[in-house]
């Protein structure tokens, strides 16, 4: 499974390169530029590999289906920054398997000392009932994949 992901990762860049060649061709018509030279001068070292989460290693306990409405949905909104099912990428805090810690964190981040932290906004935005729903969901998730 992980090998397949690696292959996908390599494949990911191929169509982009192809598109670039065809784009360069079409832009020659408008007398603009050779686009392929552009990126060669940049070496950002920044990559966004989206294939690191192994979904075959994610387990959602069957009892998650019985949670109150809103638990799954509210938890998925954390995933925008903390990864699908709370399995984060790029050395960012995971949420899968978390229970009580979530309400601890959310209380902590309400403190004004954290006002320069994005989590301050989210900690203020969730009601206590909503935080309790998050606490019911994330303990249902297990992840056994490499990170």
């Amino acid at each position: 499974m992980k090998l397949m992901h690696k292959n996908n990762h390599r494949k990911w860049y191929r169509p982009a390169g192809m598109a670039m060649i065809s784009l360069a061709g079409s832009l020659l018509l408008t007398g603009c530029f050779d686009s392929s030279s552009q990126d060669n001068e940049i070496n950002s070292g920044i990559y966004f590999d989206i294939s690191t989460v192994d979904y075959s290693a994610v387990t959602v306990d069957a009892s998650a289906a019985d949670l109150a409405p809103g638990a799954r949905l509210l938890a998925s909104q954390c995933a925008e920054c903390h990864g699908t099912y709370g399995v984060a990428v790029r050395d960012w805090p995971d949420l899968w398997g978390s229970g009580r810690q979530i309400s601890n964190w959310m209380k902590l981040y309400q403190d004004l000392n954290y006002e320069d932290n994005m989590m301050h906004v989210h900690a203020l935005g969730y009601t206590e009932d909503e935080v309790n729903l998050l606490k019911t969901y994330y303990p249902k998730i297990e992840y056994s994949g490499a990170q």
């Binding site: 920044i46 966004f48 989206i50 294939s51 690191t52 989460v53 995933a79 925008e80 920054c81 903390h82 990864g83 699908t84 984060a88 990428v89 790029r90 050395d91 960012w92 994005m118």
Partner: peptide
């Protein structure tokens, strides 16, 4: 970069 990476992965990964 960490925010964007997680958002990209959650949406397309």
């Amino acid at each position: 970069l960490q925010w964007a990476h997680n958002l990209f992965a959650d949406s397309f990964g």
